[in-house]
Nucleic acid binder design. Sequence first.
RNA 1: UGGGGAAUAGUGUAACGGUAGCACGAGUGACUCUGAAUCACUUAGUCUAGGUUCAAAUCCUAGUUCCCCAGCCA
Length: 578
Amino acid sequence: MSADKEPGSPESDSSPEAARAGHFVEQFVQDDLSAGKFGGRVQTRFPPEPNGYLHIGHAKSICLNFGIAATFGGICNLRFDDTNPTKEEAEYVRSIEEDVRWLDVGWQGDALYASDYFEQLYQWAVQLIQSGDAFVCDLTFDQIREYRGTLTAPGKESPFRDRTVEDNLDLFARMRQGEFPDGSRTLRAKVDMMASNLNLRDPVMYRILHASHHRTNDDWCIYPMYDFTHGQSDSIEKVTHSICTLEFEDHRPLYDWYLEKLKIDHPRQIEFARLNLTHTVMSKRKLLQLVEEDHVSGWDDPRMPTLSGLRRRGYTPESIRRFCELIGVAKFNGMIDIVQLENCVREHLNQCAPRVLGVLDPLKVVIENYPESKREELQAINNPEDPDAGQRTLPFGREIYIERSDFLEDPPKKFFRLAPGREVRLRYAYFITCRDVVRDPKTDEVVELRCTYDPETLGGKAPDGRKVKGTIHWVSTTDALPVEVRIYDHLFSVENPSDVPDGCDWLDHLNPESLNVLPDVWVEPSLANAQPGEIYQFERNGYFCVDPDSRPGRLVFNRTVTLRDRWAKIEKRQTAGK
RNA sequence: UGGGGAAUAGUGUAACGGUAGCACGAGUGACUCUGAAUCACUUAGUCUAGGUUCAAAUCCUAGUUCCCCAGCCA
């Protein structure tokens, strides 16, 4: 075979040395290229059904498919496998396109649809009838199941299997004309009722569905099954590598059967393990149920593993792509710890998120020796990881809020923050020392701290060289903005919610504390004009994304993820040790 | 009890007969005006049993465990 293939893009690397690079899918593609298959072309596709929103598992597939195309200088189509009008909606098409665009993996922006191939598919079905490879079957749903046999017992042939070509042609045409009610007949492939692979036991090719399709409207009342659509769609599009998940492995012989009977090209199908993440669910059926039963606020609820949910939560496309790269591609069906995902967003946000001071659980501090009328503008660094991010000013005054957790009356060992008599540094401001604790006489709760400051310590250092171990964040009470913050935790309290013991429901494991709204949060005034979608680091707290629910004068933030917190670990160990 | 897949540190993932490596986690320390980030070090693995071979995660045999398939869903 000649090796004069198209060179692909300049970036494509098809040198023999690269033959062992990358994961097994890349290796297969490389092998095919080296063997001169497909005319040296590589083409993939991402084929979602528009029956729900895309989730992080789809992102893995998107990155894989678009990544392979980019690596080998080929193209990747976004094709909607829209063969079931009863479950599919234009709204899902819209959201999927938005999410793929957002992920920024090189999609050209022109979606393809299996429904565009309906007429061709119909003609192919007619062709199979003519060649004696398909027949119209009058068996009911239940009868088809009964005739199919079981995993261990062979099936038996339909009594309608031997209809004449003429009868089949006539019946199939009348199915299309709408003469028969839903479920009354099917078109089936004549494969092998004895096959050990159940997909080969005369599978249904077409079913009657008097339902409006999101694109073809009422043009059709028969619709092809996925198995009779997918391979041919790939073939029409000249896809070379059809990458899908493991459960389609034993459908491959059927695709091959159709393609060979129709004598059309077919791609190499390669199966990989779908993504499973701890503390969440990934099936569209379950996600739909969460939405429909109002366990979440919608497909884009920031607790959802959907791309729109992650986006609203504050995840960036970069962080998701990085995650997909990190977890790899293999055939082992494992479960990835969700902390891997969280680390990816931390890693990216650490690079790009502007720093800001915000107090989630305010405790008032009065600096007794700071003049009542005095106000200062202090300089703060916007992002220590990015010198170009510049500086901003922070108003400082006599009364401030600090984080309640930064004060302890009876501090344990290694607690470096504020306590009676202790000195800490206020970020970008002065050293303060706690002199007195004010309590609510009724509840005994600490409501205020009386402190003094050292005017010589502005800039973070004391002239006498004394050190403080702790630096805490704060906001000026007279300048700070009140905002709402939504704190999220895992949607499910167990690692694998789909693993349900007898008598339990997967919904039993919903985490009742997955959403915690903090109504009384104060942030520095520089945030006044923050826009939805912007992500900030609240120093020492975490990353927070401005939610679209924000209104003028009332910002709403979603906590994307906390910062790593060594103190929390130490504290946990100390309490566990007691 | 049919068919199709898969098993490598806690979790993922490399190693393609020739030193079992990497990331995250976990642990220790350094540094630090974020207990963040950064840096250094440590920890820990080939499902089992046989066999082939100078040499096996890799090849062979037999077992074990897990996942998928009985939609007119995809």
